[in-house]
Simulated scan of single mutants.
Amino acid sequence: MTDPTAGQRDVNRGRVLAAVTRGANSRAGIVADTGLARSTVAGLVQELLAEGRLTEDAAPAGQRLPGRPPKVLRVAGGRSVVVAVDLGHSHCRVGVVAVEDGAAVVLGEGTARLDVDASPDEAVDQAVRIAKRLLRATRQAADAGGVGLPAPVDVRTGSVGTGNLLPRWVDRRPAAELSARLGVPFAADNDANLGALAEVTFGGARGVDDLVYVKAATGIGAGLLLGGRLHHGVGGRAGEIGHVPVDPGGPVCRCGNRGCLETVASTVQVLSAVRSHEAAPATMADVAGLVTAGDPGASRVVTDAGRMIGRVLADLVNNLSPRQIVVGGELAAATEPLLAGVRESIDRYAQPGLARGIAVTPSSLGVSAELLGAAALAMRLGHAAPS
């Protein structure tokens, strides 16, 4: 008979590893981060140390206090093979990824087109089927997994929050569901957060500790990396820039407000505006083709979207002073006019000293950013023991 507590124990092990990844490097810090009981944390830490998934070393000299030298917990390194799942509004994308020494190699990848919100059960089923097929084809055994989706995820509980593109997923715990089906620990996070994580782990923002990653697609969100750590806010809701009002008299947003950024600058609005004067482009790749061909209407529409996004980002620049802004998502297919619009607004509305010091760049990972972010999440959690 299966132990009914085994699944919860795996989830709690993942929560401990996630807390250490976020900077909770002591048992007391893990308790504060996760809300788990002290005795539970003590037992799980001891297990993970024995398995080599955590290490415990003397703290650096600058962090020591008088008395007995403290020790700090860290996630162990090594090669791991992870399952990465990217759930979008209309796709389920899965990869089997080998990660070692800051490099990721996608060993196998598969995508299913479906309405992810219409049937969460079917989306999870698809992810599991694709993952199992890829693991068989690549002859790999997964050590861990990560999943991203366009919704706030409470990192303490793993639950999906309200007010997102996938309302039928509210209160579901996708990491726990995938873990139970695939037999390895999983972690979940918002897709924009995973884009930020991918860029600093595998992409063009390596070494950057303060970064804003913008995912501009059907929705618009920002992943915030502050001081080298992802900033989630209460309930995982930090970075919801798509719901910043930019036009008080604008259309009603799905969140209930009027004129949110998402109602004027998402791919839905860009495609609609371009269709008003061109033969209907089906995708943002079609719009990018029009831009490349020199179509002035398509270029203006995308530039205007970039200006609106940049206006909201200028406030983030003034408040957070990041070193770099990375723009990704489907809208970034039309890279040049989009970034030009973003840059123009930041230069106009942000403090001059801050604006001059910030780099605005396209995602170096393109459409793979969120998938590789899910791999980076699994890797950082350290679920996989070193090979």
Rank of each mutant, 00 (worst) to 15 (best):
L36C: 06
V41L: 05
T40G: 07
Q46Y: 13
S39F: 07
A42M: 07
A50C: 03
T40V: 10
E51N: 04
A37K: 12
R22Q: 14
A37V: 06
L44Q: 08
N25I: 10
E47I: 09
I30M: 00
E47M: 08
L36H: 01
A50S: 11
R38H: 11
G35N: 04
L44Y: 11
G43M: 10
A37G: 15
A50N: 10
A37M: 09
A24L: 07
G23K: 02
V31T: 11
L48Q: 08
L49K: 03
L36A: 04
R22H: 12
A28P: 07
S26F: 03
N25K: 12
T40C: 05
T21N: 14
G29M: 04
D33M: 14
I30D: 00
N25M: 10
R22L: 14
I30A: 00
L48C: 05
V20M: 12
V31F: 06
R22Y: 11
L44H: 13
Q46R: 15
V41G: 02
G52S: 09
G29F: 00
T21V: 12
A24I: 03
R22T: 08
R38V: 10
V20Q: 12
G23A: 00
E47Q: 14
A42F: 08
E47Y: 06
V45R: 01
E47L: 11
N25Q: 15
N25W: 10
T40I: 02
R38I: 05
E51A: 12
V45D: 04
A42D: 14
L36R: 01
T40R: 06
T21Q: 14
E47H: 07
R27D: 09
S39R: 12
L36S: 02
R27E: 13
V20P: 11
I30T: 00
A28N: 13
L44P: 02
R27K: 14
S39D: 13
N25R: 15
A28W: 05
L49I: 01
G52T: 08
G29C: 03
N25F: 09
S39Q: 11
S26V: 02
R27L: 08
E51M: 07
R22E: 14
A50L: 12
N25G: 11
G23W: 01
R27P: 00
A42N: 14
T34H: 04
E51Y: 04
E51I: 03
I30K: 00
V31Y: 05
E51C: 04
V31H: 06
V45P: 05
G29L: 01
Q46D: 15
G43H: 14
D33S: 15
L49A: 07
R38L: 08
S26H: 08
Q46M: 13
T34A: 08
A28C: 06
S26E: 05
Q46S: 15
G29Y: 04
G29R: 02
A37Q: 14
A24C: 09
A32R: 14
V45I: 12
E47F: 06
G35R: 03
G43K: 14
R38Q: 11
E51G: 08
G43A: 15
L36M: 13
A42I: 00
A24R: 01
L36F: 02
A28T: 12
A24K: 05
G35A: 03
G23R: 00
S39V: 09
V20A: 13
A50F: 05
G43N: 15
L49T: 00
L48R: 03
A37W: 06
S26Y: 03
R27H: 04
R22S: 13
R38F: 07
E47G: 09
A32V: 08
